[in-house]
């Protein structure tokens, strides 16, 4: 007969499966292989999972995010800005905004970081096959939109008409300017608007809603019934944009937004990202607009 309580060890084997205990603090070691300065405030980091089989298995959907960790400095969620076809050789567009990102800006190529994920729900790209797609971004929202844009580029013939509508405060804050011609070359219509022109700016000036109105003006009524919209940007921006889309009868279930919240785990534990009582990290960060309307305190 047993005389003492048995000890049940919890295995610490590395695992990335959602149901495994070891998945919780399991991270991929990844190397910063390039740093590309986009503006005064944003850099594009190329980050490659070191282990090649792991890198190949790193499957994600456009719109999903990962947790990036600098040991001793901090960990934070970032939308993946690269195409899912590139797997665990990801690109992250990072703005200097806090403790982690300011430190990040000082790193050099060849530094190792930790990544966990991918986490959350992405944009349902396959549902959009055969449909028109409006990709709408305000400011840093383009970072989250770049992955679905890449997906559309790589699968261009599966989609009907595709528009990118992108607004920034000033021309010098425009992100990914070097890619605009490539997007156009892939039969994507690109409308760019800035709130305030700087010298040499010849494009549109105004709020993003103005750029959207211009698209509406040249679109037929039927266009909107077969349209999906992906909207990334600050809450005040997506609220206005989604309301305009609703007035054109784009179904709310066909509009998707990505919410930004504080996150410490990405796994539905720390509660920091809760909106009302929904975990942004598990149910989001991508939500259709109907769900957003039903979430308390989302907008």
């Amino acid at each position: 007969m047993e005389t003492r309580l048995a000890y049940t060890p919890i295995s610490g084997e590395r695992s990335h499966r959602k149901t495994d205990l070891a998945a919780f603090e399991s991270s991929y070691k990844a190397e910063i292989t390039s740093i590309h300065r986009l503006t005064d405030h944003e850099n594009l980091y190329r980050i490659q999972i070191v282990d090649q089989p792991e890198r190949e298995r790193f499957d994600f959907m456009p719109g999903q995010f990962l947790m990036l960790e600098l040991p001793g400095i901090g960990e934070a969620p970032f939308s993946i800005s690269s195409s899912p076809s590139r797997k665990g050789d990801v690109e992250l567009c990072i703005r200097k905004a806090g403790s982690l990102t300011n430190f990040m800006a000082k790193l050099e190529r060849g530094t190792y970081v930790g990544i966990r994920g991918p986490f959350g729900a992405g944009f349902p790209m396959e549902k959009m096959y055969g449909q028109n797609v409006l990709l709408i971004a305000g400011g840093l929202g383009l970072a989250a939109l770049r992955s679905p844009i890449s997906y559309v580029q790589e699968n261009r013939n599966r989609f009907n008409s595709v528009d990118i509508i992108y607004g920034a405060k000033v021309p010098s804050q425009l992100l990914f300017t070097y890619q605009y011609d490539m997007w156009r070359a892939d039969d994507i219509r690109l409308s760019i608007i800035v709130e305030k022109a700087e010298a040499s700016w010849t494009g549109k000036t105004g709020l993003i809603t103005k750029a959207l109105e211009d698209i509406f003006a040249i679109s037929r009524e039927e266009f909107f019934q077969d349209t999906y919209a992906i909207v990334c940007g600050p809450p005040v921006m997506f609220k206005f944009v989604c309301n305009m889309l609703r007035q054109r009868d784009v179904p709310m279930q066909k509009m998707f937004v990505s919410l930004e919240r504080r996150m410490h785990c990405g796994m539905g534990k720390c509660c920091r990202c809760n909106v009302g009582s929904t975990y942004t990290c598990l149910s989001g960060p991508v939500f259709d607009y109907w769900t957003v309307m039903n979430l308390k305190e989302a907008i």
Partner: peptide, 20 residues
């Protein structure tokens, strides 16, 4: 939430599974 959901928390599990 800490054991039954996706991403169970091993720090909690280790203690919880070793309780009488």
């Amino acid at each position: 939430v800490l054991l039954g959901s996706s991403y169970p928390m091993p720090y909690y599990a280790a203690k919880r599974k070793n309780m009488f």
